Simulated scan of single mutants.
Amino acid sequence: MTLYSELSAAIGRGDGESITDWARALLDGITAGAVPTTVVSHPLGFLCVPAHRSGDEGVCLHLWGPQWRRATLTTSPTHCHSWDLDSWVLTGLLRNQTVRLVDDPDAPTHQVFEVRSSAEGDVLHPTGRLVRTEVDAVTTHRAGEGYTQRAGVFHQTLVPDPRGLVATVALGLTRPGGADLSLGGLDTASHRTRRQPCPPEVATRVVRAARAALGGTRVTESAGAGE
């Protein structure tokens, strides 16, 4: 059983204790130097702590907080994935806002971009589709709760308290034939962005802050990338 399948099953049955224990062990292992990883500053405003990648499966911690400078966002924060997201909130509170696109070439507010990712970064290509948006739903999720965002649905993560720390476990499962899309400016051209690794001192501070927020005793056996 992979780490993805173990955590997915835990989210499905609402087993917050085992999910939090795993996150504590991961953060303890990173702090101790036993689990090598690169904390990445994501343009959507969070820090990504990769934990597992195998084929179509991925597991990360996503962290929002005031302790670091945000990466530059070249498009709107409204986007959709080519993969299903299952998320568990470890600490803090966030909102997930889903959005409908209305094709409107006469009075558009955005154009749709396709995001093509590689090891070198993300290349954003305008698709020529001109749209305006309508908010479909906003759901609130607190520590100890999970939520799902299916591939192909435009959404935006909102963190109401920018002074607090929000930490989630994020599981991704790629769906065949999907595309990563984002909404951008009407005059924005094709361009490349790079996801920058955090400076080591920032990554250390953030990992320690997240670990402290989870409470509990220090876990002696660290949780690595998993199989």
Rank of each mutant, 00 (worst) to 15 (best):
Q97K: 15
H141Q: 03
T188Y: 03
V89Q: 00
A143F: 02
A143Q: 06
H191K: 06
L47N: 08
L173M: 11
Y4W: 04
D161M: 13
S5H: 15
C48T: 14
A167Q: 10
T168E: 09
G224H: 13
L85Q: 00
A143C: 11
Q111G: 06
T220A: 13
A179L: 14
S8V: 07
L165P: 01
T2L: 06
T109D: 15
W88I: 00
H125I: 11
L7N: 01
S222Q: 09
A34P: 02
V40K: 15
D15A: 13
R218P: 03
Q149S: 12
T174N: 12
I19L: 15
V89D: 01
T38Y: 04
H62Y: 04
A213E: 08
R205G: 12
L171C: 01
V35I: 15
L124R: 07
V135T: 13
R69H: 07
A23Q: 04
V99N: 01
G33S: 10
N96C: 04
R194K: 10
T204Q: 15
C80T: 02
R211K: 04
V40F: 09
D86L: 12
T204P: 03
R69M: 05
L171H: 05
A119K: 14
D103K: 15
H79Y: 05
G177S: 06
T193G: 11
H62S: 03
G58K: 15
E57G: 00
A32F: 08
T217M: 06
W22H: 06
V169Y: 03
W64R: 07
R116C: 11
P176Q: 14
P77Q: 08
A210R: 02
H141G: 00
D84C: 00
E57N: 03
T148F: 15
L61E: 03
Y147Q: 03
T168V: 11
W22N: 05
Q111Y: 11
L90Y: 03
T75C: 10
V202S: 01
A25G: 09
T109A: 10
G14V: 06
R163H: 14
I30L: 05
D136H: 13
G128S: 04
S8K: 13
T74Y: 12
S182E: 14
S41A: 14
P160A: 09
T204L: 15
Q156M: 13
A151Y: 02
